[in-house]
Protein backbone atom coordinates (compact mmCIF):
# COMPACT_ATOMS: atom_id res chain seq x y z
CA UNK A 1 0.00 0.00 0.00
CA UNK A 2 1.18 3.49 -0.81
CA UNK A 3 4.13 4.48 -2.91
CA UNK A 4 7.64 5.22 -1.71
CA UNK A 5 6.69 8.89 -1.62
CA UNK A 6 3.77 8.43 0.74
CA UNK A 7 5.86 8.06 3.90
CA UNK A 8 7.92 11.23 3.31
CA UNK A 9 4.79 13.25 2.64
CA UNK A 10 3.13 11.97 5.82
CA UNK A 11 6.32 12.60 7.80
CA UNK A 12 6.58 16.19 6.58
CA UNK A 13 2.91 16.69 7.35
CA UNK A 14 3.41 15.46 10.91
CA UNK A 15 6.50 17.66 11.44
CA UNK A 16 4.53 20.67 10.14
CA UNK A 17 1.58 19.92 12.44
CA UNK A 18 3.88 19.60 15.46
CA UNK A 19 5.71 22.87 14.71
CA UNK A 20 2.56 24.80 13.90
CA UNK A 21 0.09 23.49 16.47
CA UNK A 22 1.86 21.49 19.19
CA UNK A 23 4.96 23.61 19.94
CA UNK A 24 3.02 26.87 20.69
CA UNK A 25 1.03 24.96 23.33
CA UNK A 26 4.09 23.86 25.30
CA UNK A 27 4.13 26.01 28.48
CA UNK A 28 6.62 28.85 28.13
CA UNK A 29 6.69 28.51 24.34
CA UNK A 30 5.33 30.80 21.64
CA UNK A 31 4.11 30.42 18.04
CA UNK A 32 7.07 29.81 15.73
CA UNK A 33 7.70 32.36 12.98
CA UNK A 34 6.75 31.13 9.51
CA UNK A 35 10.36 31.45 8.35
CA UNK A 36 11.55 29.11 11.11
CA UNK A 37 8.86 26.52 10.31
CA UNK A 38 9.91 26.73 6.66
CA UNK A 39 13.55 26.16 7.64
CA UNK A 40 12.66 23.09 9.74
CA UNK A 41 10.57 21.64 6.92
CA UNK A 42 13.43 22.17 4.46
CA UNK A 43 15.78 20.37 6.88
CA UNK A 44 13.28 17.51 7.19
CA UNK A 45 12.96 17.32 3.40
CA UNK A 46 16.74 17.27 2.91
CA UNK A 47 16.99 14.52 5.53
CA UNK A 48 14.39 12.46 3.69
CA UNK A 49 16.17 12.95 0.34
CA UNK A 50 19.51 11.90 1.85
CA UNK A 51 17.92 8.86 3.47
CA UNK A 52 16.06 7.88 0.30
CA UNK A 53 19.18 8.06 -1.84
CA UNK A 54 21.49 6.07 0.47
CA UNK A 55 21.40 2.95 -1.70
CA UNK A 56 20.97 2.58 -5.45
CA UNK A 57 17.74 0.67 -4.95
CA UNK A 58 16.12 3.17 -2.61
CA UNK A 59 17.24 5.95 -4.92
CA UNK A 60 15.42 4.37 -7.85
CA UNK A 61 12.36 3.80 -5.72
CA UNK A 62 12.38 7.45 -4.69
CA UNK A 63 13.24 9.23 -7.94
CA UNK A 64 11.69 6.72 -10.36
CA UNK A 65 8.07 7.75 -9.89
CA UNK A 66 8.98 11.44 -9.91
CA UNK A 67 10.94 11.05 -13.17
CA UNK A 68 8.15 9.09 -14.80
CA UNK A 69 5.60 11.65 -13.79
CA UNK A 70 7.71 14.54 -15.10
CA UNK A 71 8.43 12.88 -18.46
CA UNK A 72 4.81 11.75 -18.71
CA UNK A 73 5.56 8.23 -19.91
CA UNK A 74 3.03 5.52 -19.15
CA UNK A 75 1.14 7.55 -16.59
CA UNK A 76 -2.21 7.16 -18.30
CA UNK A 77 -4.88 9.58 -17.16
CA UNK A 78 -2.47 11.37 -14.81
CA UNK A 79 -1.39 13.34 -17.87
CA UNK A 80 -3.88 16.09 -16.96
CA UNK A 81 -2.48 16.33 -13.45
CA UNK A 82 1.04 16.49 -14.90
CA UNK A 83 0.16 19.47 -17.09
CA UNK A 84 -1.49 21.07 -14.08
CA UNK A 85 1.65 20.71 -11.98
CA UNK A 86 3.94 21.91 -14.80
CA UNK A 87 1.74 24.98 -15.14
CA UNK A 88 1.24 25.59 -11.42
CA UNK A 89 4.88 25.47 -10.31
CA UNK A 90 6.13 28.37 -12.49
CA UNK A 91 3.08 30.40 -11.46
CA UNK A 92 3.90 29.79 -7.78
CA UNK A 93 7.49 30.89 -8.44
CA UNK A 94 6.15 34.05 -10.08
CA UNK A 95 3.78 34.74 -7.20
CA UNK A 96 6.54 34.31 -4.62
CA UNK A 97 8.81 36.62 -6.63
CA UNK A 98 6.09 39.24 -6.78
CA UNK A 99 5.48 39.03 -3.03
CA UNK A 100 9.15 39.34 -2.17
CA UNK A 101 9.73 42.38 -4.40
CA UNK A 102 6.52 44.24 -3.54
CA UNK A 103 6.84 47.05 -0.97
CA UNK A 104 5.30 45.90 2.30
CA UNK A 105 2.01 47.57 3.19
CA UNK A 106 2.52 46.84 6.88
CA UNK A 107 4.31 49.18 9.31
CA UNK A 108 7.65 47.92 10.66
CA UNK A 109 7.33 45.05 13.12
CA UNK A 110 7.97 46.04 16.71
CA UNK A 111 9.63 43.62 19.07
CA UNK A 112 9.30 45.41 22.35
CA UNK A 113 10.71 43.69 25.44
CA UNK A 114 8.02 44.05 28.09
CA UNK A 115 10.23 43.33 31.11
CA UNK A 116 13.79 44.37 30.17
CA UNK A 117 16.64 43.95 32.65
CA UNK A 118 16.81 46.68 35.31
CA UNK A 119 20.04 48.61 35.99
CA UNK A 120 22.33 46.85 38.47
CA UNK A 121 21.58 49.17 41.38
CA UNK A 122 17.92 48.14 41.33
CA UNK A 123 18.41 44.36 41.51
CA UNK A 124 17.85 42.61 44.82
CA UNK A 125 16.66 45.64 46.80
CA UNK A 126 14.22 44.59 49.50
CA UNK A 127 11.22 46.61 50.58
CA UNK A 128 12.38 48.62 53.62
CA UNK A 129 8.82 49.23 54.83
CA UNK A 130 7.39 46.71 57.32
CA UNK A 131 4.46 44.88 55.80
CA UNK A 132 1.74 45.99 58.19
CA UNK A 133 -1.98 46.31 57.41
CA UNK A 134 -1.59 50.07 57.88
CA UNK A 135 1.25 50.33 55.35
CA UNK A 136 -0.67 48.22 52.82
CA UNK A 137 -3.76 50.36 53.30
CA UNK A 138 -1.72 53.53 52.82
CA UNK A 139 -0.16 52.05 49.71
CA UNK A 140 -3.58 51.29 48.28
CA UNK A 141 -4.57 54.90 48.95
CA UNK A 142 -1.54 56.18 47.02
CA UNK A 143 -2.28 53.66 44.27
CA UNK A 144 -5.85 54.97 44.00
CA UNK A 145 -4.59 58.55 43.70
CA UNK A 146 -1.60 58.15 41.38
CA UNK A 147 -1.79 54.78 39.58
CA UNK A 148 -5.43 53.79 39.21
CA UNK A 149 -6.28 56.37 36.49
CA UNK A 150 -4.32 54.13 34.09
CA UNK A 151 -3.75 50.79 35.85
CA UNK A 152 -7.36 50.68 37.04
CA UNK A 153 -9.19 50.52 40.35
CA UNK A 154 -9.33 46.75 39.79
CA UNK A 155 -5.58 46.52 39.05
CA UNK A 156 -6.48 45.26 35.56
CA UNK A 157 -4.77 47.96 33.48
CA UNK A 158 -8.14 49.34 32.38
CA UNK A 159 -8.29 52.70 34.14
CA UNK A 160 -10.29 55.53 32.54
CA UNK A 161 -7.11 57.23 31.24
CA UNK A 162 -5.64 54.06 29.71
CA UNK A 163 -7.49 53.88 26.41
CA UNK A 164 -5.13 55.94 24.25
CA UNK A 165 -1.87 54.38 25.34
CA UNK A 166 0.16 52.00 23.23
CA UNK A 167 1.67 49.99 24.88
CA UNK A 168 -1.26 49.70 27.28
CA UNK A 169 -0.72 50.08 31.04
CA UNK A 170 0.25 46.79 32.73
CA UNK A 171 -2.51 44.55 34.06
CA UNK A 172 -1.32 43.59 37.55
CA UNK A 173 -3.91 40.86 37.99
CA UNK A 174 -2.36 39.04 35.02
CA UNK A 175 0.04 36.37 36.36
CA UNK A 176 2.66 37.35 33.75
CA UNK A 177 3.23 40.88 35.11
CA UNK A 178 4.09 41.73 38.73
CA UNK A 179 3.79 38.09 39.89
CA UNK A 180 6.86 37.34 37.77
CA UNK A 181 8.83 40.29 39.13
CA UNK A 182 10.60 41.19 42.34
CA UNK A 183 9.63 44.21 44.40
CA UNK A 184 12.94 45.86 43.47
CA UNK A 185 11.96 45.66 39.78
CA UNK A 186 8.68 47.50 40.45
CA UNK A 187 10.59 50.08 42.50
CA UNK A 188 12.80 50.80 39.46
CA UNK A 189 9.88 50.96 37.02
CA UNK A 190 7.79 53.27 39.21
CA UNK A 191 10.71 55.53 40.18
CA UNK A 192 12.25 55.96 36.71
CA UNK A 193 9.07 55.52 34.63
CA UNK A 194 8.82 54.86 30.91
CA UNK A 195 11.73 57.13 30.07
CA UNK A 196 13.98 54.97 32.31
CA UNK A 197 13.60 51.89 30.10
CA UNK A 198 16.54 50.58 28.06
CA UNK A 199 16.28 50.70 24.25
CA UNK A 200 14.69 47.22 23.95
CA UNK A 201 11.82 48.47 26.10
CA UNK A 202 11.12 51.30 23.60
CA UNK A 203 11.06 54.10 26.22
CA UNK A 204 9.83 56.63 23.64
CA UNK A 205 6.41 54.91 23.61
CA UNK A 206 5.76 54.52 27.33
CA UNK A 207 3.40 56.90 29.15
CA UNK A 208 4.49 55.68 32.61
CA UNK A 209 5.41 58.80 34.65
CA UNK A 210 8.83 59.21 36.23
CA UNK A 211 7.45 59.20 39.77
CA UNK A 212 10.78 60.02 41.42
CA UNK A 213 10.14 63.69 40.63
CA UNK A 214 6.83 63.65 42.50
CA UNK A 215 6.78 60.87 45.13
CA UNK A 216 9.20 60.00 47.97
CA UNK A 217 10.72 56.50 47.91
CA UNK A 218 8.72 55.50 50.98
CA UNK A 219 5.44 56.09 49.12
CA UNK A 220 6.67 54.06 46.16
CA UNK A 221 7.51 51.07 48.41
CA UNK A 222 4.05 51.32 49.99
CA UNK A 223 2.40 51.53 46.56
CA UNK A 224 4.20 48.30 45.64
CA UNK A 225 2.75 46.58 48.74
CA UNK A 226 -0.73 47.91 47.97
CA UNK A 227 -0.43 46.75 44.34
CA UNK A 228 0.46 43.16 45.19
CA UNK A 229 -2.21 42.97 47.86
CA UNK A 230 -4.91 44.53 45.71
CA UNK A 231 -4.09 42.40 42.66
CA UNK A 232 -3.90 39.23 44.80
CA UNK A 233 -0.36 38.49 43.64
CA UNK A 234 2.93 37.86 45.43
CA UNK A 235 6.32 39.19 44.44
CA UNK A 236 8.70 36.73 42.84
CA UNK A 237 11.32 35.43 45.23
CA UNK A 238 14.51 33.53 44.50
CA UNK A 239 14.06 30.05 45.91
Amino acid sequence: MGGPLLKPVILIGIVYAILKFAVPNIPGSAPLPASLIFLYLMLTTSGIVIFATLSGESKDAFWGPIQRFLTGENIGNLQVLRYGVLLLLPLIVGWQTYNSTAISAAPPAENRTIHPAPPGEYTGLSNPIAKTPDAIQQGKGFYAAFCSPCHGGNFDGKGPASRGFNPPPANFSDPTTIAMLQESYLFWRIKKGGVGLPIEGMPWKSAMPRWEVELPDEWIWKIIMGEYDGAHQSPRTWE
Binding site: G3, P4, L5, Y16, P65, F69, V85
Partner: peptide, 26 residues
Protein backbone atom coordinates in the same frame (compact mmCIF):
# COMPACT_ATOMS: atom_id res chain seq x y z
CA UNK B 1 11.32 -1.35 -11.31
CA UNK B 2 7.65 -0.64 -11.90
CA UNK B 3 5.38 1.60 -9.94
CA UNK B 4 1.63 1.75 -10.10
CA UNK B 5 -0.16 4.86 -11.26
CA UNK B 6 -1.69 5.24 -7.79
CA UNK B 7 1.76 5.38 -6.20
CA UNK B 8 2.84 8.15 -8.52
CA UNK B 9 -0.37 10.02 -7.89
CA UNK B 10 0.11 9.84 -4.13
CA UNK B 11 3.57 11.26 -4.39
CA UNK B 12 2.70 14.03 -6.78
CA UNK B 13 -0.45 15.14 -4.99
CA UNK B 14 1.48 15.05 -1.72
CA UNK B 15 4.23 17.17 -3.24
CA UNK B 16 1.81 19.77 -4.52
CA UNK B 17 0.04 19.89 -1.15
CA UNK B 18 3.43 20.34 0.49
CA UNK B 19 4.29 23.32 -1.71
CA UNK B 20 0.90 24.84 -0.93
CA UNK B 21 1.54 24.20 2.76
CA UNK B 22 4.84 26.11 2.57
CA UNK B 23 3.04 29.02 0.96
CA UNK B 24 0.29 28.94 3.56
CA UNK B 25 2.74 29.51 6.41
CA UNK B 26 3.99 32.74 4.83
Amino acid sequence: MKHGVSEIATGVIGGVLLVMGFLAVE
